[in-house]
Amino acid sequence: MERLRERSSEKWREYPADVLPLFVAETDFPLAPEITRVLERAVAIGDTGYIASRTPLPEAYAGFAARRFGWSPDPARMRPTADVSMGIVEILRRVTSPGDRVIVTPPVYPPFYELVAEAGAVVERVPLRDTGSGWELDLEGIGRALDAGARAILLCNPHNPTGTVHTSASLAALAELAASHGAVVVSDEIHAPLAQPGTGFTPFLAVSDTARAVGYAVVSGSKAFNLAGLKCALMVTASEDTTRVVRGLPVEVEWRTGQFGLLAAVAAFSPQSDPWLDGLLATLDENRRLLADLLTARLPAARYRIPDAGYLAWIDLTDLGWGDNPSRRILREARVALHFGPAFGAEGAGHVRLNFGTSPAIITEAIERIAALS
């Protein structure tokens, strides 16, 4: 842990040294060797300028998508930008008018609410449905919101914070709903590389011809490969109309991409990094199950469903009686920093989000500290 505390990013600088930081979505693992090699070479030769007008990133991502998802997007229909949030905002600005309503599906990544507002639109909340064993899109509720005039759906696929991998059937139905109402779907697929093998992850643009006509995807290696600070994402389209929208964005949307981010993303999406990613997924599989075992043994009142994707655990602590925002007490008394559940929407009352992209020792100590409060 001492080596981790040498890092200067948000995760290891926000709180004092006695706090275990399991809140923000950064991981504690070494970089993939190919990324380290590429960045070290860039520093050595001073390759620190602006990104070029033509880069190998679209082809690199297309190859990655083919290998990992069985999907072959067209590199000619992709455009880089600084991060997924910027891509979302810039697309929403072009496909909605001020005051239009954009559907989000809480509990959901807290910045979604601000991104919709930044684009000049208004949030329309249609919560996920709790099936008793997992979560799913409330297609009937989304249909009602579209009937009432919503113009876009901001999708999180896989979903943050629940780790849900939406089924291809539900995504296809979502596309049909959007098309029948003249609406669009903007799919945040930043966690897609972290879908566990066998979950059946489907990129939105791969699900149907209708999805390709109404959809935009924004993708990045930043979560899987821990590259958020390097600033690089891709806006991906699959039809003439949607491609025209993205090509019409100002050049500065592209030029804000970080040169190191682009170099690192190309390395991340290369075949050379596949073994590292496979190892990461195996580690996260062990960690998500370790967390389940620890909660069962030490905090049996907690309710936790093992996520399909990612390294974020959505944990319901309501039955412990620690209030709507139990993270506050946990931080104050247990010295463990978790993400505040209510930040994800009203559905997050009594919940916390825990980042298990770290060592088993840190996960174990965190749960032991929290369990000591009960």
Rank of each mutant, 00 (worst) to 15 (best):
A268W: 02
E254D: 04
Q259K: 14
A264T: 08
L284C: 08
T283G: 05
S273L: 06
D274F: 11
P275I: 11
W276L: 09
V266Q: 05
E254Q: 14
L262M: 07
D285H: 13
Q259N: 12
L280T: 12
E252A: 07
L281S: 02
T243S: 13
L280E: 11
A268F: 02
G258W: 07
F260S: 02
P275N: 09
W255V: 02
S273N: 05
L262Q: 08
D285N: 10
W255P: 00
L262N: 01
F260E: 03
A282Y: 05
D274H: 08
L249N: 03
V266S: 01
L280G: 07
A282K: 14
D278L: 07
F260P: 00
E240D: 15
L263K: 01
L262D: 02
T283P: 00
S239N: 07
L262S: 02
T257I: 13
L280C: 06
F269C: 04
V245Q: 13
L281R: 15
S270K: 11
E240K: 12
L284A: 03
A268L: 02
L284T: 12
D285T: 14
D274Y: 14
P250E: 04
V266K: 04
W276Y: 15
L281C: 07
Q259T: 13
E240T: 07
Q259S: 09
V266W: 06
W276I: 14
D285K: 04
A267N: 11
L263G: 01
P250C: 02
L263I: 09
R247H: 05
G279P: 00
L280F: 08
E254H: 05
L262E: 11
L277R: 05
A282I: 05
Q272H: 15
V253Y: 03
G261D: 10
V266I: 11
A238K: 09
E254F: 10
Q259L: 12
A268V: 00
L277S: 07
V251G: 07
L249S: 03
R244K: 14
E254R: 15
G261H: 10
